[in-house]
């Protein structure tokens, strides 16, 4: 029986190994891409963060001075605080809105596809420069929003030049794009079996009780997925603050990614920029790890039963 597979005999060990690991050949482009465009830059930026790397003058000093400077520079700590604020506002509101609307759409609503499309369009276009221009038109001093407010006798503030309001306008742009998260929630809600609700209704559970004790637990995997992706994306927001407010007024919309851009490509301080990016990366990584370790406590995967 051993010799019943004759073609094996003629093969060299190397060829044999390759046949057993053919998959490696298919992921070889990915491996190259990962090493050249991800791993190498990733390591290099960690190295740069411990230098005073400048685009024109190169490196003359090594040490942890960038990290010390980060926590002693008001501009940078403020950007970190603003980014935290941005995440704390946009992520919960976006998820809450997405879930709320998906919940309503899941009752046999007429024209459900038309509504879904209307809510989804902003997610597709929201990141574009065109929408940033539109936002500027809506929230300028004589813009559409203030005109609308004047009809009810309110004098609207200078949304984009008042440090108290500018960040909210940038936040609103992101919350406006809740459609992609909503589509995911809607698909998950459709997957909750109807007989569960019927049983709960017979037991006398009200709509709100059903929502929090049946619906939410059943869709925790999607809540978890949305939460993690939204946090990661919120930390990287760049277009809105760059185009609409350019980080101003007085740094009130300077998110970390914008600050990194300014240090690296305006002041050519690549070392400092890398250090700021790494501080952000570590915060983001810690949050992601917390989310992943906590999921055992609150995320319910049906196939684990």
């Amino acid at each position: 029986m051993k010799n019943s597979v004759p073609q094996v005999q003629g093969r060299s060990p190397a060829r044999k190994w390759l046949d057993n690991n053919l998959g490696l050949l298919y992921i070889l482009p990915w491996i190259i891409g990962f090493l050249v465009f991800k791993a190498y830059p990733f390591g290099l930026s960690l190295f740069y963060s411990f230098t005073d790397m400048n685009f024109f003058y190169g490196i003359s000093e090594y040490g942890i001075m960038n990290y010390i400077e980060i926590f002693n520079t008001a501009k940078i700590t403020k950007a970190l605080a603003v980014t935290a604020q941005y995440c704390l506002i946009t992520v919960p509101l976006k998820l809450a809105f997405a879930l709320f609307i998906a919940y309503i759409l899941n009752f046999n609503i007429k024209f459900v596809n038309a509504f879904r499309t209307a809510y989804y369009v902003p997610s597709i276009l929201g990141g574009s420069v065109a929408i940033a221009v539109l936002w500027k038109a809506l929230f300028r001093d004589e813009g559409m929003v203030n005109t609308l407010l004047s009809y009810v006798g309110v004098t609207g503030p200078s949304w984009l030049s008042d440090p108290d309001y500018a960040l909210f306008i940038i936040c609103f742009l992101r919350i406006w794009q809740f459609g992609s998260a909503m589509v995911l929630f809607l698909a998950a809600l459709k997957g909750v079996p109807a007989d569960v609700y019927e049983a709960a209704t017979i037991d006398g559970a009200g709509k709100w009780k059903q929502f929090f004790s049946i619906t939410v637990p059943m869709i925790t995997p999607v809540i978890f997925y949305n939460l993690v992706t939204q946090i990661c994306q919120a930390f990287q927001e760049f277009n809105g603050p760059y185009i609409i407010t350019n980080g101003g007024p007085r740094g009130s919309t300077t998110l970390v990614s914008l600050l990194v851009y300014q240090y690296a490509f305006r002041q050519q301080e690549m070392g400092m920029a890398s250090a700021i990016a790494w501080v952000m990366f570590i915060i983001c990584a810690v949050l992601t790890i917390i989310a992943f370790t906590s999921q055992k406590k609150w995320v319910y995967y049906s196939d684990e039963r």
Partner: peptide, 11 residues
């Protein structure tokens, strides 16, 4: 989960 911001400078 790797933010692009970290990679921008070396890239």
């Amino acid at each position: 989960f790797l933010p692009q911001v970290v990679l921008n400078v070396p890239q």
